[in-house]
Amino acid sequence: MKSGHFALPALSPRFIPVWRRNLLVWRKLAIPSILGNFADPLIYMLGLGYGLGALLPEVGGVPYISFLAAGTVCFSTMNSATFEALYSGFSRMHVQRTWEAIMNAPLTLDDVAFAELLWAASKSFLSGLAILIVIWVLGLSSSFLSLWILAVVPLIGLAFAALAMAFMALARSYDFFMYYFTLVVTPMAMLCGVFFPISQLPGPLQSFASVLPLTHATALVRPLMMGEIPAAPVINVLVLLAYALAGFYAAVILFRRRFLD
């Protein structure tokens, strides 16, 4: 690793054609992709929400399905950004050598990485949006404040896309990503207030959960969905932003080590 690898990412508008390339591929597979965006999280939300919810008293002061709806928006956005940045990103970077082809044009590694970050975040926005539409249609949220979630979802997408990219930069094969799901995604799904309130956790786990990005995502989305203003929105936004920036910087350093050494 060389000192030059730690330079801040240098960005240029040249990244746009790379983002558009991914969009063109997505458009060819749009129907199954959109179906996946709706169907998967919807089954979870409705199955658990109505099935399990019928056995439960109110959770956090609302019916369980309403509680779960906010968690599902966050969880689904995280998952979508993570899958795109890990599996699809790795295909483009390593398997298909698409990045190498692009970097023979007047683009740099930083441009490509930035385009990939924005693309994964864009795709996860569609997932979050799909769930939101279902929630609105089902009347699980009727507050105008819930429109603010449209601004929060891209931030969640950026944070998780950046983290997954940094991990993907170290991968030698697809199998490597199992570690990320076991060590990062699954614990967050359980600890960060997606399925039940964080207050149910023992004290030390609560403290641990408080530094995880998904906690700050649910802390923003849940109150907005209920028509309330989040308790500490500035901190939540700053934490998500910090994960996005730090994750992207780490990803760029690791990509440089991978490609330039």
């Binding site: 558009r20 063109l24 082809a101």
Partner: peptide, 19 residues
Amino acid sequence: NLDPDFTVEENLRVYGRYF
């Protein structure tokens, strides 16, 4: 390292955009 998701024409058009 052609783009396997694209047609022949799309490969050229998308590559041109990078320039």
